[in-house]
């Protein structure tokens, strides 16, 4: 629902890094996005095409690496992917978990010419 602002932030980061490297064209932006962030890939690409059209990022492909949500049991240390409403540890049945993956939200790298 807030893809426009997020897309502007992605574009700003990429343009900033490309400028520092004196690049003439950005060809690809590699993003790492955890499953827990409410971002729709197609929607980001749509806004990106619009926001970048007069810049060196025009026509750039966005690549989304999605990270599934993963939790770790605080009692026995077992890591697992939670299955719907089952958040108890499959190993020791405790309901005491911390989220260890799925919150990623960063620009990993850009590819430039």
């Amino acid at each position: 629902m807030h893809e426009l602002g997020v897309t502007q932030a992605i574009l700003d980061i990429a343009l900033d890094k490309a400028k520092a490297a004196k690049a003439e064209k950005i060809t690809k932006i590699n993003l790492v996005i955890g499953e827990m962030s409410g971002i729709v890939d197609d929607c980001v690409q749509f806004y990106f095409d619009f926001l970048s059209k007069d810049s060196i990022a025009s026509g750039t492909t966005l690549s989304f690496k999605r990270i599934p949500m993963q939790v770790r049991c605080r009692k026995c240390g077992f890591s697992f992917l939670p299955d719907n409403s089952l958040w108890s540890c499959p190993q020791c049945n405790e309901w005491d978990v911390e989220i260890i993956a799925g919150r990623e939200f960063y620009v990993d790298s850009i590819e430039v010419e």
């Binding site: 932030a9 992605i10 890094k17 490297a21 960063y106 620009v107 990993d108 790298s109 590819e111 010419e113």
Partner: peptide, 14 residues
């Protein structure tokens, strides 16, 4: 050329 960035997208907000 690939440039490593590793920057949080919400950095400006934070």
């Amino acid at each position: 050329m690939k440039i490593k960035v590793l920057q949080n997208i919400l950095n400006a907000n934070d």
